[in-house]
């Protein structure tokens, strides 16, 4: 009985985190982006500095008509948001926030699980892009696919470097093996992982697949109401997952300069929050990369860097053993 209760509680906690954290990131993005542009951002919803803006947005989305274009492939069109969103929920299940048992579900081959399932999420965008019967959506879908193929490889290689360093592919195992000097050692891999993750999430400056000034909103052009909201939610859930993963893999998760016992999960959350801020910061600062620049960055910069990182990791590993 207590086992069942434990499982239910864990699932519930992960689900709540899944619903709350993306909204927190979204609200932070509203506010941070506004202030970086000399604006105030939402000020009314909820009273105090517009804290409930995203709740209000959700209510608005729920009230909208759910439109399926006449020429669309109905079932796939309707299924796509769920395919885009669910993988991030699954990934969140495997990210450890604290030492010991503070993880939704321990997965033996954690890195592979996380990266594999994140890759599945992009299928949602592809399905949406194809099923909308809209040329802009189709273009968005093609760009999404091209971007995923280009950036999946450096992301995997960077993650493999950490797995080599730690000698394990389980996420809690990697954090357990972490020492502070891993940060300078793996910094290149960390940057490659983070950048590739941003590209996979189609966050600016890598938002060519949804470039609103040329292809409206890419694969999501034809979506309205709740399904559109699900796509947006999956983007922000993706930010949470990416930042959490980078924290766990490269920044030592719950290790901190002090307060290691009991407060470890706070360190994880703090690092994740800082990274989420960086995601927003990058979005505000840089203009969108052109499609050829996107591909060039992945194939000629990130992959060589990731390979160099793997070589460095291997050399250090052999020398120190």
């Amino acid at each position: 009985m207590s086992d069942t209760l434990d499982v239910v509680l864990r699932l519930l906690a992960v689900f709540v985190a899944f619903l709350v954290l993306p909204l927190v990131v979204g609200q932070t993005e509203h506010k941070v982006m506004a202030h970086m542009q000399g604006r105030l951002g939402p000020m009314y919803a909820g009273g105090f500095h517009g804290w409930a803006q995203l709740v209000a947005d959700g209510v608005k989305f729920a009230q909208k008509e759910d439109v399926v274009p006449a020429g669309a492939d109905r079932r796939i069109f309707q299924m796509a948001p769920a395919v885009a969103l669910l993988p991030y929920l699954l990934v969140l299940l495997a990210i450890p926030v604290g030492p010991g048992n503070a993880v939704g579900q321990t997965v033996d081959a954690g890195i592979f699980f996380v990266l594999a399932v994140m890759g599945v999420g992009v299928l949602g965008s592809l399905m949406a892009g194809w099923a909308s019967a809209n040329k802009f959506s189709l273009l968005g879908g093609i760009r999404t696919a091209g971007q995923l193929i280009a950036y999946e490889l450096p992301m995997l290689l960077a993650a493999a470097s950490v797995a080599m360093a730690a000698g394990t592919v389980s996420l809690p195992g990697i954090v357990d093996a972490f020492h502070w000097w891993w940060v300078p050692w793996q910094i290149v891999g960390a940057v490659v992982f983070f950048v590739a993750g941003l590209a996979e999430l189609q966050r600016p400056p890598f938002d060519m697949p949804v470039a609103d000034s040329e292809i409206i909103f890419g694969a999501y052009t034809e979506y309205t109401g709740l399904r559109f909201a699900l796509f947006l939610l999956s983007e922000y859930a993706g930010i949470v997952v990416l930042c959490g993963l980078t924290t766990v893999l490269f920044l030592g998760g719950w290790h901190g300069p002090f307060g290691a016992d009991g407060m470890g999960w706070l360190w994880t959350l703090l690092k994740t929050a800082v990274l989420a801020f960086v995601v927003i910061w990058l979005r505000v600062t840089y203009p969108r990369l052109r499609e050829d620049q996107l591909q060039k960055l992945a194939w000629t910069v990130l992959i060589p860097l990731a390979l160099a990182q793997i070589a460095l990791t291997g050399v250090v590993k052999v020398v120190t053993q």
Binding site: V32, A34, H35, M36, G38, R39, L40, V284
Partner: peptide, 21 residues
């Protein structure tokens, strides 16, 4: 240049917003 861009946005964030309420 990339760093300068980041500095600009960060500096703007620490200043008061221009929004007329």
């Amino acid at each position: 240049g990339l760093a300068k861009g980041l500095a600009v946005t960060l500096r703007t964030m620490t200043r008061r917003a221009h929004t007329a309420q």
